[in-house]
């Protein structure tokens, strides 16, 4: 029905909006990662999460999501490997349509008629997420290659 089987492949999805400043950092990063990751990884960009995301990752063996994050004491550019199933964190995953990641995964399995991929979330600390601009904060822009390298290592550790 809605599935295109990707058999055994891993998809890396950058989530963000490139005209929303640091919100677009994951998009910029996956464009770099696309050039350097081995062919077993498929790299995609996604403007939204929620149902859109379900359709993007369904059919893969594993999905590695990269998104921006802002934490109270965070330093821009820090990379976190995110335990999205942590009960303290899960309720705060305000994906579009507010279907949280757990529900997306479970629903995909129910409606798609097959297992959803194993999902991992990598998050990059952002500085500002509240303005319209095409540029990243200077702190992120200057570290972009460094962050991409860190993500590449993390991705290959995961898979």
């Amino acid at each position: 029905m809605i599935l295109v089987k990707q058999k055994g492949r891993t998809v890396v999805v950058g989530i963000g909006n490139p005209i929303r400043g640091d919100d677009g950092v994951a998009i910029r990063l996956v464009r770099k990662l696309r050039e350097v990751l081995p062919p077993r990884f498929e790299v995609k960009e996604s403007a939204t999460a929620g149902l859109e995301l379900m359709e993007t990752i369904l059919g893969y063996r594993r999905a590695i999501l990269i998104d921006a994050i802002r934490t109270p004491e965070g330093v821009p550019g820090e990379v976190y490997r995110f335990d999205w199933q942590d009960s303290k964190v899960a309720p705060y995953l305000p994906f579009s349509h507010t279907i949280n990641l757990g529900q997306v995964v479970e629903m995909g399995g129910m409606l798609g008629g097959q297992e959803m991929p194993a999902v991992e979330v990598l998050a990059v600390e952002a500085k500002r997420l509240d303005a319209f601009c095409e540029d990243l904060s200077p702190e992120l822009e200057e570290k972009l290659d460094e962050i991409a390298a860190e993500l590449r290592t993390a991705i290959q550790e995961i898979d």
Binding site: D23, R70, V121
Partner: peptide, 14 residues
């Protein structure tokens, strides 16, 4: 309100 950020930890929206 999706014109607010979608990011995992949110911005001032939260």
């Amino acid at each position: 309100l999706a014109c607010a950020t979608h990011a995992i930890a949110g911005g001032p929206a939260l």
